[in-house]
Every structure is written in structure tokens, then in C-alpha cells.
């Protein structure tokens, strides 16, 4: 089901853990929709000196977190901001279609952690984003499109059922 790279990162995840007194923390997802990811950053000279993650989620979500930390480590903040969910999925040699939503979490968590660091530096206090009960499709970069989980064709966000395969979708939204 998964590529060898995904399995490698799932079985031997890199950079698991938390950083005490982290310079930036990014939390995305929510256990209610299946995944939750926290990214911790240690930043020196606008460069990611250290990065750690904690993830509640499937094999793909753990592999995405691990790969993301490898990609971000040692990068300047400007470079790290260019990491996208797509580039993480590509570095993992692809993910199964129904797992792409897991990859949507990774880069989002990193970008939030960087923003958290920059906010602190600039003295901006933002209210903590409220966790919502349902998936917020618009939050995810590149993940705005809803696809039917059964046949993977694109559907509108308020679709009652999939026009491709007829599955009821209402409760998924």
C-alpha cells in the first residue's frame, strides 16, 4: 500500500519528541477528524537549528511528519516556508490517494510553527486557533478540493452524495 520511503519513515521516524522552550510551536488537525500533529522549532540566526514532532495519526501521517522534519532541519525560515504539502508527499514517493489528506497536515504545522516564532518576535499575540469539530477544508493549502473518499472524483463541498459512485457524503462534511 505504501512506498518503501513511507514505510521507512513510519518504522524509523526521525525527530520524534518535543523541544523544551521551543521558539515556535505549530499544532494542526484535531483528533476528531483523525489526525493531529505538533511541530516544535529551535531557531538560531533565522535558521531551523532543531525540529521535533508529535503525531496522532495513521502510518502516512507519521511518515509525513518525519519526512517534513528532515526536509526543514537546517533550512533558513525563508527556505522552510517554501516547503509545501505536495513537496513532502513527493519526497515520500507519493501517498495513496485516500491518504493525501494526511500530507495536508505536515507543511501546515511547520508554517504555523514559523508564524508562531515570528509573531513572538514581533510581539504579536494571536488568539489560538479554535479547534473545530469538523474538517475545515479551506485551512489546508492545496487541500481545498473535496474528493469522494470512495471513488476519488472531485465533488463540491456541500454535495449530498457523490455524482460518480452514488455514495452518501453528507456526514463527511
Amino acid at each position: 500500500m505504501y512506498s518503501n520511503t513511507v514505510m521507512d519513515h513510519f518504522k524509523n521516524p526521525r525527530n520524534v519528541g518535543e523541544i523544551e522552550n521551543a521558539d515556535g510551536i505549530g499544532e494542526v488537525g484535531n483528533p476528531l477528524c483523525g489526525d493531529m500533529m505538533s511541530i516544535y522549532l529551535k531557531i538560531e540566526n533565522e535558521t531551523i537549528k532543531d525540529i521535533k514532532f508529535k503525531t496522532f495519526g495513521c502510518g502516512a501521517a507519521i511518515a509525513v511528519s518525519s519526512m517534513l522534519t528532515e526536509m526543514a532541519k537546517g533550512k533558513t525560515l525563508e527556505e522552510a516556508k517554501k516547503i509545501t504539502n505536495k513537496s513532502v508527499a513527493e519526497a515520500l514517493e507519493g501517498l495513496p490517494k485516500n491518504k493525501l489528506h494526511c500530507s495536508n497536515l505536515g507543511a501546515d504545522a511547520l508554517h504555523l510553527a514559523i508564524q508562531d516564532y515570528e509573531d513572538k518576535k514581533a510581539g504579536i499575540v494571536r488568539p489560538k486557533p479554535k479547534r473545530e469539530d469538523k474538517h475545515n477544508h479551506e485551512e489546508h493549502e492545496g487541500g481545498e478540493k473535496c474528493t469522494c473518499p470512495y471513488c476519488s472524483i472531485e465533488v463540491t463541498e456541500d454535495a449530498l452524495f457523490c455524482t460518480g459512485c452514488g455514495h452518501m457524503l453528507k456526514e463527511l462534511h
Binding site: 476528531l32 502516512a60 463527511l172
Partner: peptide, 20 residues
């Protein structure tokens, strides 16, 4: 996640387990 449907099991929700 494993079911691919991104839905928690309706059976487990019916007996009162939460999504997590």
C-alpha cells in the same frame, strides 16, 4: 484512516466511543 473513508466507525460511535 485505515478504512480510507475518513469517517470514524459508526458502530463505535453508536456505543458511545468518541472519534479519538
Amino acid at each position: 484512516c485505515a478504512a480510507g473513508a475518513l469517517q470514524a466507525s459508526h458502530v463505535l460511535l453508536a456505543i458511545g466511543r468518541d472519534f479519538a
